[in-house]
Design a protein around this nucleic acid. Structure first.
Lengths: 195, 195
DNA sequence: TTGAAGAGTGAACGTGCGTTCAGTTACCCT
DNA sequence: AGGGTAACTGAACGCACGTTCACTCTTCAA
């Protein structure tokens, strides 16, 4: 048999990406075979090559899409007028978005080393662009006297690491609601860099 | 030929672990073959099995040893008498130790999913024991009124994530000395959870 | 001097890998 | 009605994997 009824590329393409993301996040890129991905989608391995030139390109596509969506989502977020408000928005946005996309976030941190040098540079560039968004907030806050940040680069890295860390322990339906977590983290960040 | 002069198990064993650690950290557990490790050591693949029952046991040994050394090193550290001093010691210890062992730290965060369930539980237990060390400091500080920590569990995770994040960007001989980094991070932590 | 034990070799085992491709089917357009 | 094409199959390619094992060489105690 070939081509089951109702099966189209607009369906199979996204499903391949979804299953690949799930499997890569769970077991790691190198530990997941094209045959496993195909089986999860319900096709033969060969069919995957209608949607991706090779395995690495599939990973790259997932990472690139994620980073671009992260940046796009941040840019549509309403900006805070004052430095402290801008920082709070960033903190809440980062925690919220990352919890919504935990699989892709995990991938973006863990599987960079499986990329070719050129592809790595692309993802790295997108990540740096995102980090710069936070650093600009900190710089502006420092300049306005609303924040006390001895080294904005370090503070940027520290805050992002701290916020992203939520993904390692947060479970939906756990002890704390997402909003409570955001509030507690915002409280710590505010105190850490507040004037 | 077999056995070159001056070649002993007391030399080969540690070299295997060292090369495996290096390669696993660089390329990921699943992406490194036993033959690659053997080649780096300068033996044939079969020889590795004189030192480990299988590939996963080799990884488990690396992770377990690292976590045990981390806990042992922390326990020999002089304790601070007061809560704030104890917390400062923890912050500086964590950054310092992790920078000294960046390969093993990387492995301990990235390769847990390649462990069997039983082995995973062991490493997880050790990690939790380490986290508890920090949480106890925070609890004591909160009780003594020296710290203001609304949720000690969250603060524990936030601080550890923030500190461990140093490993992702710190490079020896870079812009900032290790001590400067420790001081800046300690400053942020103190403000974040200080009373 | 000898022989057991230690350390390592090198070939082989079956398996699963990423990828290719000729062939097959189902749908759409005319 | 029927031909073209998009979607997919299933088998095959060569290769690398983890692991085993009979064997060889070296060392050292008795």
């Amino acid at each position: 048999m070939a081509r089951k009824t109702g099966s189209h590329s607009e369906i199979t393409g996204p499903r391949i990406r979804a299953e690949a993301s799930r499997l890569f996040a769970r077991h790691g890129f190198a530990a997941v075979s094209m045959r496993q991905i195909a089986a999860a989608v319900g096709v033969q391995a060969g069919a995957l090559y209608l949607y991706t030139p090779d395995k690495e390109a599939l990973l790259f596509d997932l990472l690139k899409t994620h980073m671009e969506e992260l940046l796009a989502a941040w840019h549509t977020e309403p900006k805070g007028a004052e430095p402290l408000e801008a920082l709070e928005r960033f903190v809440r946005f980062h925690i919220g978005f990352n919890l919504m996309r935990s699989e892709a976030v995990f991938l973006s941190y863990m599987e960079l080393r499986n990329l070719s040098e050129a592809n790595f540079a692309v993802i790295e560039g997108l990540r740096r662009a995102y980090e710069t968004e936070l650093e600009e907030i900190l710089k502006a806050g420092q300049a306005a006297g609303a924040l006390s940040v001895p080294d904005t680069k370090l503070a940027t890295m520290a805050i992002i690491a701290m916020l992203t860390g939520v993904n390692t322990w947060y479970r939906e339906g756990g002890r704390l609601s997402r909003d409570t977590v955001e509030t507690i983290y915002w409280d710590m960040v505010r105190k850490a860099v507040g004037a």
